[in-house]
């Protein structure tokens, strides 16, 4: 049972500032900046809503590692593997990462004491989340680039978290 799931993505709006001649250079700068820094939380779900804030901070911190890993992967030849493995092992929690080909980041937080979930279980959990996410992106009522607010999606993710699916 995972305690928190987050979907974080690049904020698309920054990439398409109007590029007229005057701002072109500036835009490129911003673009690079956005690639490096801007991560926009699309969805966060926690089993215990009271802890959501602290989990958000944990997810935020873990993005540092995700970024480093992605950059590392870019250099290696095989970038088919989307599962990034464990990012962090805090005293209380373990944090796992997964990144799609479009650089959408999925984060799962698990209690440190939870020994039942091994890498394989986490991996399959990520796959399920990925397919849920793909369904949402294909949904005509979803505006790409915005936070995901569908109840059904939240329920499905919750089910994945609790392992009832």
């Amino acid at each position: 049972m995972a305690v928190c799931v987050a979907i974080v993505g690049k904020d698309v709006s920054r990439n398409c500032l109007e590029a007229n001649e005057i701002t072109l250079k500036y835009t490129l700068m911003i673009y690079e900046y956005s690639c490096l820094f801007l991560e926009f939380p699309k969805f966060i779900s926690c089993l215990n809503p009271d802890e959501e804030l602290s989990f958000q901070y944990k997810v935020l911190s873990s993005l540092d590692i995700v970024e480093e890993k992605i950059n590392g992967i870019n250099k290696a030849s095989d970038n088919r593997e989307l599962f990034l493995g464990m990012l962090y092992a805090l005293e209380t929690h373990k944090i796992y990462g997964y990144v799609t080909n479009t650089r959408m980041k999925f984060i799962i937080v698990v209690d440190s004491s939870n020994m039942a979930l091994r890498d394989n279980e986490i991996r399959s959990m990520f796959r399920k989340i990925h397919s849920e996410y793909a369904d949402i992106v294909g949904n005509p009522f979803y505006t790409p680039g915005e936070a995901i607010t569908f109840k059904s999606f939240a329920n499905n993710i919750k089910n994945i978290m609790t392992g009832t699916v």
């Binding site: 904020d11 820094f37 801007l38 991560e39 926009f40 939380p41 804030l53 958000q56 901070y57 935020l60």
Partner: peptide
């Protein structure tokens, strides 16, 4: 603000 992490922002 740059990251648009609104819930953290609000906090």
């Amino acid at each position: 603000r740059q990251e648009k992490w609104w819930s953290l922002m609000s906090n």
